[in-house]
């Protein structure tokens, strides 16, 4: 009988050139004819953890600090930590295999809850502008930063990882896994005019590893003001 494999909800119509098997995930490392960008990469297989605790500050996942303000992100070593609210953060293992889920009850493995897509390269942010009113290019925020809101009508977590010249740059995006096909269709449709093509994990790693370790943004002045003035959450 066939080997047991996992399957991503994203199936690009492109020729996979190189595939690696990782924890039963067939991971496409490279597609033929990926072009010069912009690129869209399926990262659904990347491990994602949800951490919720009233006292989030007492946690140091993998020894890393959790950013303190909602909307702030920290991309350190191979891990991106996004602060979601007062009691919750998301931990995405972007560049290396994840270790076992920590035993504390606050952690949940949510790898399979969402589809994770990277959209980057020339005009990547112009593609996003066709799909969301979220300000992914907010000049008052330092990359990486997180926005939780609608993207192509669906509630998403969107992280601007890089903002380059004009509309160049890149972002990560998650939405409910069941929407994967609709979301990918919408992104490819919006990106067609810019030559958007699917790319393999290698392309993502090459881009993202250049960004890891940069100082994370802690400045989100408008948000900070609100957090300190509101009692209800």
């Amino acid at each position: 009988m066939k080997e047991i494999q996992r399957q991503s909800p994203v199936q690009f119509k492109a020729d996979a050139q190189k595939i690696a098997m990782r924890d039963n995930w067939p991971v496409v490392l490279e597609y033929s004819n990926e072009g010069r960008g912009p690129f869209v990469v399926d990262l659904t297989h990347k491990a994602k953890w949800d951490l919720q605790d009233k006292n989030l500050a007492t946690h140091k996942p993998l020894g890393l600090d959790i950013p303190t303000l909602p909307g702030a992100c920290a991309f350190q070593k191979s891990v991106l930590i996004n602060r979601l609210n007062r009691t919750q953060c998301a931990i995405w293992h972007l560049l290396a295999d994840a270790p076992a889920l920590p035993g504390e009850p606050g952690y949940t493995d949510v790898t399979e809850s969402t589809v994770l897509l990277a959209l980057f390269g020339p005009n990547a942010l112009a593609i996003a502008e066709k799909l969301t009113a979220l300000d992914l290019m907010d000049p008052q925020k330092q990359t990486p930063f997180l926005l939780q809101g609608p993207f192509s009508h669906l509630p998403c977590q969107v992280v601007t990882l890089e903002r380059g010249h004009g509309f160049d740059g890149g972002l990560l995006l998650t939405c409910s896994r069941g929407y994967a096909r609709s979301m990918v269709h919408a992104i490819l449709d919006a990106g067609a005019e810019f030559g958007l093509r699917p790319a393999g994990e290698q392309r993502f790693s090459a881009w993202a590893s250049g960004l890891s370790g940069k100082p994370g943004s802690a400045q989100a002045p408008s948000v900070m003001h609100l957090v300190t003035t509101r009692e209800n959450l």
Binding site: P9, K130, L154, G178, Y179, S182, A186, D189
Partner: peptide
């Protein structure tokens, strides 16, 4: 505009 049909599919 684009008017994409966003629907969920099971695995």
């Amino acid at each position: 505009g684009a008017n994409h049909d966003m629907c969920k599919r099971t695995p």
